[in-house]
Protein backbone atom coordinates (compact mmCIF):
# COMPACT_ATOMS: atom_id res chain seq x y z
CA UNK A 1 0.00 0.00 0.00
CA UNK A 2 1.28 3.44 -0.84
CA UNK A 3 1.74 5.74 2.10
CA UNK A 4 0.17 9.23 1.99
CA UNK A 5 3.52 10.92 1.48
CA UNK A 6 4.58 8.88 -1.52
CA UNK A 7 1.08 9.22 -2.93
CA UNK A 8 1.39 13.00 -2.77
CA UNK A 9 4.82 12.84 -4.37
CA UNK A 10 3.44 10.64 -7.14
CA UNK A 11 0.59 13.06 -7.80
CA UNK A 12 3.03 15.95 -7.99
CA UNK A 13 5.21 14.00 -10.40
CA UNK A 14 2.17 13.30 -12.60
CA UNK A 15 1.28 16.98 -12.56
CA UNK A 16 4.75 17.93 -13.74
CA UNK A 17 5.11 15.29 -16.51
CA UNK A 18 2.65 16.76 -19.09
CA UNK A 19 4.36 20.12 -18.74
CA UNK A 20 7.65 18.52 -19.72
CA UNK A 21 5.96 16.82 -22.71
CA UNK A 22 4.43 20.09 -23.81
CA UNK A 23 7.79 21.74 -23.45
CA UNK A 24 9.45 19.17 -25.76
CA UNK A 25 6.77 19.54 -28.38
CA UNK A 26 6.97 23.32 -28.29
CA UNK A 27 10.71 23.26 -28.63
CA UNK A 28 10.44 21.60 -32.05
CA UNK A 29 7.93 24.23 -33.20
CA UNK A 30 10.14 27.09 -32.02
CA UNK A 31 13.07 25.73 -33.93
CA UNK A 32 10.97 26.25 -37.03
CA UNK A 33 9.31 29.61 -36.17
CA UNK A 34 12.18 31.56 -34.61
CA UNK A 35 14.47 31.98 -31.57
CA UNK A 36 12.60 34.85 -29.78
CA UNK A 37 9.35 33.00 -29.46
CA UNK A 38 11.27 30.01 -28.16
CA UNK A 39 12.99 32.02 -25.37
CA UNK A 40 9.71 33.62 -24.22
CA UNK A 41 7.91 30.33 -24.15
CA UNK A 42 10.64 28.52 -22.26
CA UNK A 43 10.80 31.35 -19.63
CA UNK A 44 7.06 31.03 -19.17
CA UNK A 45 7.32 27.26 -18.85
CA UNK A 46 10.10 27.39 -16.29
CA UNK A 47 8.07 29.93 -14.22
CA UNK A 48 5.10 27.65 -14.37
CA UNK A 49 7.28 24.70 -13.47
CA UNK A 50 8.69 26.60 -10.48
CA UNK A 51 5.19 27.55 -9.34
CA UNK A 52 4.04 23.97 -9.58
CA UNK A 53 7.15 22.84 -7.73
CA UNK A 54 6.48 25.44 -5.01
CA UNK A 55 2.87 24.30 -4.70
CA UNK A 56 4.05 20.72 -4.45
CA UNK A 57 6.48 21.69 -1.65
CA UNK A 58 3.73 23.59 0.14
CA UNK A 59 1.38 20.62 -0.11
CA UNK A 60 4.10 18.38 1.30
CA UNK A 61 4.72 20.85 4.13
CA UNK A 62 1.00 20.86 4.99
CA UNK A 63 0.97 17.05 4.99
CA UNK A 64 4.06 16.95 7.20
CA UNK A 65 2.44 19.49 9.51
CA UNK A 66 -0.55 17.19 10.10
CA UNK A 67 1.82 14.36 10.93
CA UNK A 68 3.79 16.58 13.32
CA UNK A 69 0.71 18.08 14.95
CA UNK A 70 0.33 15.55 17.81
CA UNK A 71 3.94 15.88 18.98
CA UNK A 72 3.76 19.65 18.44
CA UNK A 73 0.65 19.79 20.63
CA UNK A 74 2.37 17.76 23.35
CA UNK A 75 5.43 20.02 23.13
CA UNK A 76 3.35 23.19 23.40
CA UNK A 77 1.10 21.97 26.23
CA UNK A 78 3.71 20.18 28.34
CA UNK A 79 6.80 22.24 27.62
CA UNK A 80 6.26 25.63 26.01
CA UNK A 81 3.26 26.77 28.07
CA UNK A 82 4.82 25.77 31.45
CA UNK A 83 8.08 27.39 30.35
CA UNK A 84 6.38 30.69 29.58
CA UNK A 85 4.35 30.43 32.80
CA UNK A 86 7.55 29.79 34.78
CA UNK A 87 9.15 32.83 33.17
CA UNK A 88 6.11 34.92 34.13
CA UNK A 89 5.99 33.59 37.71
CA UNK A 90 9.68 34.36 38.14
CA UNK A 91 8.85 38.08 38.04
CA UNK A 92 5.97 37.81 40.53
CA UNK A 93 5.34 36.97 44.19
CA UNK A 94 3.22 33.88 43.39
CA UNK A 95 2.91 31.76 46.55
CA UNK A 96 0.72 28.96 45.24
CA UNK A 97 -2.28 30.08 47.31
CA UNK A 98 -3.43 33.27 45.63
CA UNK A 99 -3.65 34.23 41.96
CA UNK A 100 -3.54 37.88 42.98
CA UNK A 101 0.04 38.27 41.78
CA UNK A 102 2.26 41.31 42.18
CA UNK A 103 5.06 42.27 39.83
CA UNK A 104 8.41 41.94 41.60
CA UNK A 105 10.82 42.86 38.82
CA UNK A 106 14.18 41.18 39.26
CA UNK A 107 13.94 40.76 43.04
CA UNK A 108 13.49 36.96 42.80
CA UNK A 109 16.61 36.76 40.63
CA UNK A 110 18.53 38.86 43.16
CA UNK A 111 17.40 36.46 45.92
CA UNK A 112 18.73 33.50 43.96
CA UNK A 113 22.18 35.05 43.64
CA UNK A 114 22.32 36.20 47.26
CA UNK A 115 21.30 32.87 48.80
CA UNK A 116 24.40 30.96 49.99
CA UNK A 117 22.59 27.59 50.03
CA UNK A 118 21.57 27.93 46.36
CA UNK A 119 25.10 28.89 45.36
CA UNK A 120 26.48 25.94 47.34
CA UNK A 121 23.93 23.72 45.58
CA UNK A 122 25.04 25.08 42.22
CA UNK A 123 28.67 24.33 43.11
CA UNK A 124 27.94 20.71 44.02
CA UNK A 125 25.73 20.21 40.95
CA UNK A 126 28.51 21.36 38.62
CA UNK A 127 31.11 19.28 40.48
CA UNK A 128 28.84 16.23 40.33
CA UNK A 129 28.06 16.63 36.61
CA UNK A 130 31.68 17.12 35.56
CA UNK A 131 33.27 14.46 37.80
CA UNK A 132 30.60 11.87 36.97
CA UNK A 133 30.93 12.62 33.24
CA UNK A 134 34.73 12.26 33.29
CA UNK A 135 34.69 9.29 35.70
CA UNK A 136 32.11 7.30 33.75
CA UNK A 137 33.77 8.03 30.40
CA UNK A 138 37.26 7.08 31.61
CA UNK A 139 36.04 3.81 33.12
CA UNK A 140 33.31 2.80 30.66
CA UNK A 141 35.54 2.86 27.54
CA UNK A 142 38.21 0.45 28.90
CA UNK A 143 35.44 -1.71 30.33
CA UNK A 144 33.72 -1.84 26.93
CA UNK A 145 37.05 -2.73 25.27
CA UNK A 146 37.57 -5.58 27.76
CA UNK A 147 34.07 -7.05 27.45
CA UNK A 148 34.27 -6.68 23.65
CA UNK A 149 36.79 -9.53 23.64
CA UNK A 150 35.44 -13.02 23.55
CA UNK A 151 36.11 -15.00 26.71
CA UNK A 152 34.24 -17.58 28.73
CA UNK A 153 31.05 -15.99 30.13
CA UNK A 154 31.55 -12.63 28.36
CA UNK A 155 27.79 -12.26 27.80
CA UNK A 156 27.17 -12.84 31.50
CA UNK A 157 29.77 -10.21 32.44
CA UNK A 158 28.19 -7.70 30.02
CA UNK A 159 24.77 -8.33 31.58
CA UNK A 160 26.10 -7.93 35.13
CA UNK A 161 27.57 -4.49 34.39
CA UNK A 162 24.41 -3.42 32.58
CA UNK A 163 22.18 -4.49 35.48
CA UNK A 164 23.76 -1.87 37.80
CA UNK A 165 21.90 0.77 35.85
CA UNK A 166 18.53 -0.99 35.85
CA UNK A 167 17.31 0.04 39.36
CA UNK A 168 16.55 3.74 39.73
CA UNK A 169 19.16 5.91 41.39
CA UNK A 170 16.64 6.69 44.14
CA UNK A 171 16.58 3.02 45.19
CA UNK A 172 20.36 2.84 44.87
CA UNK A 173 20.61 5.83 47.20
CA UNK A 174 18.50 4.13 49.87
CA UNK A 175 20.53 0.93 49.71
CA UNK A 176 23.90 2.66 49.69
CA UNK A 177 22.81 4.82 52.64
CA UNK A 178 22.98 1.69 54.78
CA UNK A 179 26.23 0.54 53.20
CA UNK A 180 27.92 3.91 53.86
CA UNK A 181 26.31 4.44 57.27
CA UNK A 182 28.74 6.25 59.59
CA UNK A 183 27.76 3.94 62.47
CA UNK A 184 29.87 0.96 63.53
CA UNK A 185 27.09 -1.26 62.21
CA UNK A 186 27.31 0.26 58.69
CA UNK A 187 28.28 -2.33 56.06
CA UNK A 188 31.58 -0.72 55.01
CA UNK A 189 32.52 0.13 58.59
CA UNK A 190 31.75 -3.45 59.72
CA UNK A 191 34.11 -4.78 57.03
CA UNK A 192 36.79 -2.25 58.00
CA UNK A 193 36.49 -3.19 61.67
CA UNK A 194 37.55 -6.75 60.76
CA UNK A 195 40.90 -5.25 59.76
CA UNK A 196 41.03 -3.15 62.92
CA UNK A 197 40.19 0.11 61.14
CA UNK A 198 38.08 2.61 63.14
CA UNK A 199 34.65 3.58 61.74
CA UNK A 200 34.81 6.23 59.01
CA UNK A 201 32.18 9.01 59.13
CA UNK A 202 31.09 8.41 55.53
CA UNK A 203 27.82 10.33 55.35
CA UNK A 204 28.37 12.57 58.37
CA UNK A 205 31.40 14.32 56.90
CA UNK A 206 30.83 16.88 54.14
CA UNK A 207 33.76 15.86 51.95
CA UNK A 208 33.17 12.12 52.34
CA UNK A 209 29.44 12.53 51.68
CA UNK A 210 30.25 14.27 48.37
CA UNK A 211 32.65 11.46 47.52
CA UNK A 212 30.06 8.77 48.35
CA UNK A 213 27.34 10.36 46.18
CA UNK A 214 29.68 10.80 43.20
CA UNK A 215 31.20 7.33 43.63
CA UNK A 216 27.78 5.65 43.53
CA UNK A 217 26.68 7.71 40.53
CA UNK A 218 29.77 6.59 38.61
CA UNK A 219 29.43 2.96 39.76
CA UNK A 220 25.76 2.81 38.77
CA UNK A 221 26.19 4.34 35.31
CA UNK A 222 29.39 2.69 34.06
CA UNK A 223 27.61 -0.45 32.84
CA UNK A 224 25.00 1.39 30.78
CA UNK A 225 27.55 3.62 29.09
CA UNK A 226 29.92 0.67 28.55
CA UNK A 227 27.06 -1.06 26.68
CA UNK A 228 26.67 2.07 24.55
CA UNK A 229 30.40 2.06 23.76
CA UNK A 230 30.23 -1.66 23.06
CA UNK A 231 27.70 -1.03 20.29
CA UNK A 232 30.04 1.53 18.72
CA UNK A 233 33.08 -0.75 19.19
CA UNK A 234 31.39 -3.56 17.31
CA UNK A 235 30.90 -1.34 14.30
CA UNK A 236 34.66 -0.64 13.96
CA UNK A 237 35.94 -2.68 10.96
CA UNK A 238 38.23 -5.49 12.14
CA UNK A 239 40.60 -4.99 9.18
CA UNK A 240 41.76 -1.68 10.68
CA UNK A 241 43.18 -3.61 13.62
CA UNK A 242 44.61 -6.30 11.32
CA UNK A 243 46.44 -3.70 9.24
CA UNK A 244 47.71 -1.98 12.39
CA UNK A 245 48.96 -5.33 13.76
CA UNK A 246 50.77 -5.99 10.46
CA UNK A 247 52.31 -2.50 10.70
CA UNK A 248 53.57 -3.41 14.19
CA UNK A 249 51.29 -1.13 16.27
CA UNK A 250 51.12 -2.03 19.96
CA UNK A 251 47.69 -2.64 21.61
CA UNK A 252 47.95 0.76 23.32
CA UNK A 253 48.72 2.48 19.99
CA UNK A 254 45.78 0.63 18.41
CA UNK A 255 43.53 1.83 21.26
CA UNK A 256 44.67 5.45 20.97
CA UNK A 257 44.78 5.69 17.17
CA UNK A 258 41.95 3.41 16.09
CA UNK A 259 39.56 2.73 18.94
CA UNK A 260 39.31 6.25 20.44
CA UNK A 261 38.85 8.11 17.10
CA UNK A 262 36.32 5.54 15.90
CA UNK A 263 34.46 5.85 19.22
CA UNK A 264 34.19 9.63 18.98
CA UNK A 265 30.46 9.68 17.99
CA UNK A 266 29.81 7.37 20.97
CA UNK A 267 31.80 9.61 23.31
CA UNK A 268 29.82 12.66 22.13
CA UNK A 269 26.50 10.86 22.77
CA UNK A 270 27.58 9.44 26.14
CA UNK A 271 29.08 12.65 27.53
CA UNK A 272 26.05 14.63 26.35
CA UNK A 273 23.71 12.27 28.21
CA UNK A 274 25.92 12.30 31.31
CA UNK A 275 26.23 16.07 31.39
CA UNK A 276 22.54 16.79 30.88
CA UNK A 277 21.58 14.06 33.39
CA UNK A 278 24.20 15.26 35.89
CA UNK A 279 23.01 18.86 35.82
CA UNK A 280 19.44 17.89 36.68
CA UNK A 281 20.39 15.28 39.34
CA UNK A 282 18.02 15.05 42.29
CA UNK A 283 17.14 11.47 43.26
CA UNK A 284 20.49 10.04 44.36
CA UNK A 285 21.75 12.83 46.67
CA UNK A 286 18.25 13.35 48.06
CA UNK A 287 17.68 9.73 49.04
CA UNK A 288 21.21 9.31 50.40
CA UNK A 289 21.80 12.54 52.30
CA UNK A 290 18.80 14.82 51.68
CA UNK A 291 21.36 17.38 50.55
CA UNK A 292 23.42 17.25 53.77
CA UNK A 293 25.50 17.41 55.84
CA UNK A 294 24.73 21.10 55.78
CA UNK A 295 24.40 21.95 52.09
CA UNK A 296 27.34 19.81 50.95
CA UNK A 297 25.34 17.54 48.61
CA UNK A 298 22.54 20.01 47.92
CA UNK A 299 21.61 20.28 44.23
CA UNK A 300 19.99 22.98 42.10
CA UNK A 301 17.00 20.75 41.33
CA UNK A 302 16.46 20.11 45.04
CA UNK A 303 16.64 23.84 45.62
CA UNK A 304 14.01 24.49 42.93
CA UNK A 305 11.67 21.85 44.37
CA UNK A 306 12.30 22.86 47.98
CA UNK A 307 11.95 26.60 47.56
CA UNK A 308 9.31 26.55 44.84
CA UNK A 309 6.95 23.82 45.97
CA UNK A 310 8.02 22.90 49.54
CA UNK A 311 8.24 26.46 50.81
CA UNK A 312 5.54 27.99 48.58
CA UNK A 313 8.01 30.49 47.09
CA UNK A 314 7.02 29.84 43.49
CA UNK A 315 8.50 33.17 42.38
CA UNK A 316 11.98 32.36 43.66
CA UNK A 317 11.70 28.73 42.53
CA UNK A 318 10.67 29.86 39.04
CA UNK A 319 13.54 32.38 38.83
CA UNK A 320 15.95 29.62 39.77
CA UNK A 321 14.39 27.29 37.20
CA UNK A 322 14.69 29.92 34.44
CA UNK A 323 18.33 30.60 35.28
CA UNK A 324 19.08 26.91 35.47
CA UNK A 325 17.38 26.29 32.12
CA UNK A 326 19.53 28.97 30.48
CA UNK A 327 22.72 27.78 32.18
CA UNK A 328 22.05 24.18 31.15
CA UNK A 329 21.35 25.23 27.57
CA UNK A 330 24.65 27.15 27.45
CA UNK A 331 26.64 24.29 29.03
CA UNK A 332 25.12 21.69 26.71
CA UNK A 333 25.69 23.86 23.60
CA UNK A 334 29.29 24.48 24.65
CA UNK A 335 29.75 20.78 25.18
CA UNK A 336 28.29 19.95 21.76
CA UNK A 337 30.52 22.55 20.12
CA UNK A 338 33.57 21.18 21.94
CA UNK A 339 32.65 17.61 20.98
CA UNK A 340 32.23 18.64 17.34
CA UNK A 341 35.66 20.32 17.35
CA UNK A 342 37.24 17.16 18.81
CA UNK A 343 35.33 14.93 16.34
CA UNK A 344 36.45 17.08 13.41
CA UNK A 345 40.06 16.72 14.51
CA UNK A 346 39.82 12.93 14.40
CA UNK A 347 38.01 12.75 11.05
Amino acid sequence: MMNPCSRTAQAAEDAVRPVRGYSNHNHERHQMSGITTSVNASAHESREYRNRKRMQGFREDVTSFWFLLPILAVFVVLFLVPLIQTLYFSFTDFNGYSMNLHWQGLSNYRKVFSDPSTLEGLGFTILYAIVVMIGVTLLAIPLAVVVNHKFFGHNFVRSVFFFFSVPSLAIMGMVWKYIFSPMKSGVVNSVLSVFGIAPIPWLSNSGLAKFCVIFIAIWAQIGWHATLYLAFLQSIPADLYEQATVDGASPFQQFMHITVPQLMPGIVTSTFLLMSGGLKVYDLPFTMTKGGPGYSTYTVTQSIIQQGIGQSQYGVGSALAVLFFLATAVVVMLQLWFSNVISARFE
Binding site: K177, P199, L203, N205, G292, P293
Partner: peptide
Protein backbone atom coordinates in the same frame (compact mmCIF):
# COMPACT_ATOMS: atom_id res chain seq x y z
CA UNK B 1 29.26 11.19 68.65
CA UNK B 2 29.11 13.86 65.98
CA UNK B 3 28.16 11.08 63.55
CA UNK B 4 24.55 11.82 64.47
CA UNK B 5 24.77 14.12 61.41
CA UNK B 6 24.61 11.00 59.26
CA UNK B 7 22.24 8.91 61.42
CA UNK B 8 18.57 8.66 60.49
CA UNK B 9 15.78 8.31 63.05
CA UNK B 10 15.49 4.65 62.03
CA UNK B 11 19.23 4.08 62.63
CA UNK B 12 18.92 5.53 66.13
CA UNK B 13 15.81 3.49 66.91
CA UNK B 14 17.48 0.29 65.72
CA UNK B 15 20.48 0.97 67.98
CA UNK B 16 18.15 1.43 70.94
CA UNK B 17 16.10 -1.68 70.24
CA UNK B 18 19.33 -3.69 69.96
CA UNK B 19 20.44 -2.45 73.39
CA UNK B 20 23.40 -0.46 71.99
Amino acid sequence: TRDTVGMSADDVKTQFVNGQ
